[in-house]
């Protein structure tokens, strides 16, 4: 115990708060925000067979936050019988994106090549976004598994963004900005974002200006999306833990401030 410093106690407290609330496994009621509702409504309104391009623009480090969000969006798309084209503009997201698509496709008995394809990674994201706007086939002569573009049934009718209803960028950084600037700005394709909570304020101005069509963010966004889909997933499971962790942080801020003022007062005396 002598070895423990104040920061250790803070970490231990957080560990216990999150651990205990997760073991309790109580589901909180989640109120759906207009952001998530708009995203859900758009995907829900698409007729079966519509094509969405899902771009996995994230790294492995943000997987705990991105995974529930990506799963919720993919489940919704497959549930609505939409056809999905997966790409990745960050190399670390490549295998993650493929596995997530594979997992959700299996749940809804979707067939590779017909209902979904995964094209994989392309470097230089600006060049890749612009190139896809001209020709998806030129950008990806073959898919992630090595199949030729023309061999994939789903891609036969897809030349560029004109044949895609929207792009969903699943991102943990500023890559969605490039989709907005080049994908939407130059080619007019609808951009939707499923982003980490840290990026929400970055994309808010684009949402307000209409350059980005809809967005959902963070674990909270995942919980809201799961609520709309009426399924239980990582988002909903994490809500009690997240709320408790936030209360714990607020408690620490209050204690920190009180101790600061008390110390200051003692110093004056």
């Amino acid at each position: 115990m002598k070895h423990l410093k104040s920061r250790h106690w803070i970490f231990l407290g957080l560990f216990l708060v999150i651990g205990i609330t997760m073991i309790l496994n109580v589901k909180l009621n989640v109120r759906v925000s207009p952001y998530t509702q708009k995203m859900f409504d758009y995907i829900d309104s698409l007729p079966p067979g519509s094509i969405l391009l899902i771009s996995f623009d994230h790294e492995a480090s943000s997987l705990p936050e991105i995974r529930p969000l990506a799963l919720a969006v993919l489940r919704h798309a497959f549930k609505k019988d939409l056809r999905l084209i997966g790409v990745s503009l960050l190399s670390e997201g490549t295998v993650i994106g493929y596995r997530l698509m594979q997992k959700t496709a299996k749940e809804y008995h979707k067939v590779y090549g017909k209902d979904y394809v995964y094209l994989g990674f392309r470097p230089q994201y600006v060049a890749a976004i612009l190139s896809m706007g001209e020709s998806l086939k030129e950008t990806y002569p073959q898919d992630y598994l090595g199949n030729k573009y023309d061999q994939l049934n789903l891609l036969k009718s897809v030349k560029n963004y004109n044949n895609i209803d929207a792009v969903i960028s699943i991102a943990d950084g500023s890559l969605t900005t490039h989709w907005i600037e080049y994908g939407h700005g130059r080619y007019g394709v609808k951009i939707l974002g499923a982003v980490t909570a840290a990026m929400v304020t970055t994309y808010d101005p684009y949402l307000a200006s209409g350059q980005m069509y809809a967005m959902t963010g963070g674990l909270r966004g995942a919980a809201e999306y799961e609520e709309l889909l009426k399924i239980s997933g990582g988002g909903a499971r994490g809500m009690l833990a997240q709320s408790s962790a936030h209360l714990y942080v607020i408690f620490l801020i209050i204690v920190g401030n009180l101790s600061y003022f008390i110390t200051k007062r003692k110093g004056r005396k």
């Binding site: 957080l14 560990f15 999150i18 651990g19 997760m22 073991i23 480090s61 943000s62 997987l63 705990p64 936050e65 995974r67 529930p68 980490t196 909570a197 840290a198 990026m199 929400v200 304020t201 963010g217 963070g218 674990l219 909270r220 990582g234 499971r237 994490g238 833990a241 997240q242 962790a245 936030h246 942080v249």
Partner: peptide, 22 residues
Amino acid sequence: TTFGYTVMSRMSTFIGRMEFLL
């Protein structure tokens, strides 16, 4: 607001790992 969202993001990452561990 941005800082609050960032804290939320980092907590989510930790919660995700805790979920895996537990």
